Amino acid sequence: MIEAAMLWNEPNNKSHWDATVDPDWSMLAAHVIAAGTAIRAVNPSLPRVLGGMSPIDPHWLRRMEAHGALEAVDVVAVHGFPLDWNLWPLAAWPDKIAEIQAVTDKPIWVTEVGVSSFGDEAVQVFGLRRTAELLRGRAERVFWYSLFDLPTSWGAETRHREAEGSSYYRHFYLGLIREDGTAKPALDVYAEHAAEIGLMQWFHFHDPRLEEAVAWMKRLGTRRIRTGLSWADSFRENAVDWFDRKMEALADFDVTVTFCFTPAHLGIEPHHTSPARDPQAFADFCAWMIDRYAGTATIAPSTGPAALAAAQPELNPLLFNRDERLAAERKSA
């Protein structure tokens, strides 16, 4: 069910990671290293993806490499929205990919790319078609953001909200389907590329659009999906039931799952963008989700603790203390 695990979302963007707490991203690196190690312990063959950077910044990637984070991932991801937010033209996509290729030999995925219909729906049609041309053959995975417009009553996950002016309101028009459920012209263009370009869709807790989204994606011929499992949501009532329902609904797709959002009570600051006080707590959540939805590629489920310890003693604390740690975290919530 899970094709890959992504560690955080846009971690070099101040709307998603609090750089005032972690100005050199060393704490982020500790989270990535801990989570990457924990995921590898549970499923050694599952690709681990460094959360898609936005902006696309080779200097930031070098910093993460200096902190040792790239040793714990298999793929580097980038996000780009040149017709809405980035300060570079649409035609620069090949150059932006090349900038990252120049500083790493890891595969590069474009895990979010999109064009809003905020100004004109014809701009989205042009942008989707041109983006498909520019990225073809340059990235192993491309995910279009997104299937649905964000309902205006929900609010966007960005730090400064309405103070951002039109940049904030563009968040609500990035879907291929309007809030009222009707299709935009760009939907037909996406359908032409659905076999090669996946869809990135965030689902809110108990999102009422889940079944409708699955029906649309199957109708369009989409093969790959990127979505998120929120660490913060895991402390909400009936969280596991929601996670199970979502992952079961997406079972027919190849899913890249993104782990992010710090529970307020576990953060250095009480906010979902804050580094956790203990990075291992994030790693435990990631390992728990992979164990539940992606299993293990090399260790039989019936294998006992003694055999596991003998086979991989250095991973023993990750494998055997996780349940106790998770129980303690939930007790403290």
Score class of each variant (00 low, 15 high):
A232E: 14
D233L: 01
D233C: 04
D233K: 02
D233Y: 13
D233V: 03
F235E: 07
R236C: 04
R236D: 01
E237M: 06
E237D: 13
N238D: 15
N238A: 12
N238W: 02
A239R: 13
A239G: 10
A239L: 02
V240C: 02
V240Q: 12
V240H: 08
D241Q: 15
D241G: 12
D241K: 15
W242H: 09
F243Q: 14
F243H: 13
F243A: 15
F243W: 13
D244V: 03
R245D: 03
R245W: 04
K246G: 02
K246P: 01
M247K: 00
M247T: 01
A249R: 05
A249K: 06
A249H: 10
A249C: 01
L250Q: 09
L250M: 13
L250C: 10
A251I: 04
A251W: 03
A251D: 12
D252C: 09
D252Q: 14
D252R: 06
F253C: 02
F253V: 02
D254I: 02
D254F: 00
V255E: 07
T256N: 03
T256F: 07
T256E: 10
T256A: 14
V257M: 01
V257Y: 07
T258Y: 07
T258M: 11
T258L: 11
T258N: 10
T258G: 06
F259K: 08
F259Q: 05
C260D: 04
F261E: 08
F261C: 10
F261V: 00
T262A: 06
T262Q: 11
P263K: 07
P263T: 08
A264V: 03
A264L: 02
H265E: 12
L266T: 10
L266W: 03
L266R: 15
G267S: 04
G267I: 05
I268D: 03
I268H: 07
E269L: 14
P270E: 15
P270W: 11
H271W: 11
H271R: 14
H271T: 10
H271N: 15
H271E: 12
H272E: 12
H272G: 04
T273P: 04
T273W: 08
S274I: 06
S274M: 01
S274W: 01
P275M: 08
A276P: 06
A276Q: 00
A276D: 00
R277A: 11
R277P: 02
D278Y: 09
D278K: 04
D278N: 15
P279L: 13
Q280G: 09
Q280M: 09
Q280I: 06
